[in-house]
Design a protein around this nucleic acid. Structure first.
Lengths: 200, 200
DNA sequence: CCTACCGATCGGTAGG
DNA sequence: CCTACCGATCGGTAGG
């Protein structure tokens, strides 16, 4: 507890910590994030940093959830109110590529990085991430299926297109973050539109 | 130095260490690999483990190179002697998917994991990985271009197809390692063949 | 290739 | 939200 401050201040502190944790973890990974270095970066003690969460692992969980919120705000949120169909899928693709090209996380797509970091480490973090990714995949396949209904056939299976779109986002992230390839975003956008069956 | 043993024995010890390091790092990541736990797993002292390499970082570098060798032996090696063209690309895809489905690394594709782990961590490991990935990408695009010459058009740009194939391998790896989806390999194979313009 | 050690840092807790 | 600690572990080295 922090009896010297109001509940609103406590919430702000919590947000500040989570934001810094997300930023740091996008660079060094969730497992690479240490309580000591994050505390130093924020000018607080380790106890003060971990206190609001109970443990480092629960801080990491909060960071993972916050990163998903950032992804949704950047990619999925702007689609709210748009009916399912080709135009919505087209906007989703544009938003997704824009998110990768001008990424809110300094180290590149947080979810992609967390996926490959945690897939071999059983525990609550991995379980949570698995739910997140599976849910995102279901929604993506549904978007594809809805768009296909209004597009000329023949179509690839919607699940296959969802896999292709996910993969293209991962490849683009790699080309941007590791290779520094300036043509990556444009190429990914073209490939995603093609994979989705959208007109050129 | 290890004056009690022959050079051949020293080389065998070195190989044993690198093999264990690759296996361990495929689960916990290169940065997650600690000298102490690896030494304990092999029943050696920390000094004995690191000695042949000079430092932990050089042991990690040896593990990275060894992992690439494993990938090549599984995926690229079997193509030796086959002329560039559709059949060679088809075999490459089949070998790649087979490698992902029945992976020689317990934690899934080592290169994919290392890429996303190291892309935000400047240093010799990242530099080496960047070379490896860029070289692999160039070779892949060349395979695609050679196959397209013998296939009916029109074709997507070879670079775009190379990105799509790379992405599909990453998505399949995620579906297999994180989601445990038994249909991932078959779907990836179909999507890769389609992206490459190969006949169904 | 070992033991025995180095200083630094890890996540966490007691107590205020 | 702090200081002051806890035992454990980190990578590395000296010396054999």
């Amino acid at each position: 507890m922090s009896p010297r401050h109001s509940a609103a201040e406590a919430a702000r502190t919590r947000e500040r910590i989570v934001g810094a944790a997300v930023s740091e973890a996008s660079r060094v990974g969730l497992e690479g994030l240490t309580v000591g270095s994050l505390a130093q970066r924020l000018g607080m003690s380790k106890a003060g940093l971990v206190g609001p969460f109970g443990s480092r692992e629960r801080l990491l969980m909060a960071a993972l959830d916050q990163a998903c919120e950032v992804f949704r705000a950047a990619v999925t949120g702007p689609l709210d109110g748009l009916p399912p169909g080709p135009e919505r899928l087209e906007r989703l693709i544009d938003g997704w590529v824009g998110y990768l090209a001008d990424c809110p996380f300094p180290g590149g797509c947080f979810v992609t990085a967390a996926t490959s970091e945690l897939d071999g480490r059983p525990g609550p973090l991995r379980d949570r991430l698995r739910e997140i990714v599976a849910s995102h995949r279901r929604a993506l396949a549904a978007e594809v299926a809805a768009a296909q209904e209004a597009l000329p056939g023949p179509h690839r299976p919607a699940e296959e297109v969802a896999t292709a779109l996910t993969g293209l986002s991962m490849a683009a992230n790699q080309e941007i973050q590791l290779l520094g390839d300036p043509s990556a975003a444009g190429r990914a956008r073209a490939a995603m539109r093609h994979a989705a069956g959208l007109p050129a």
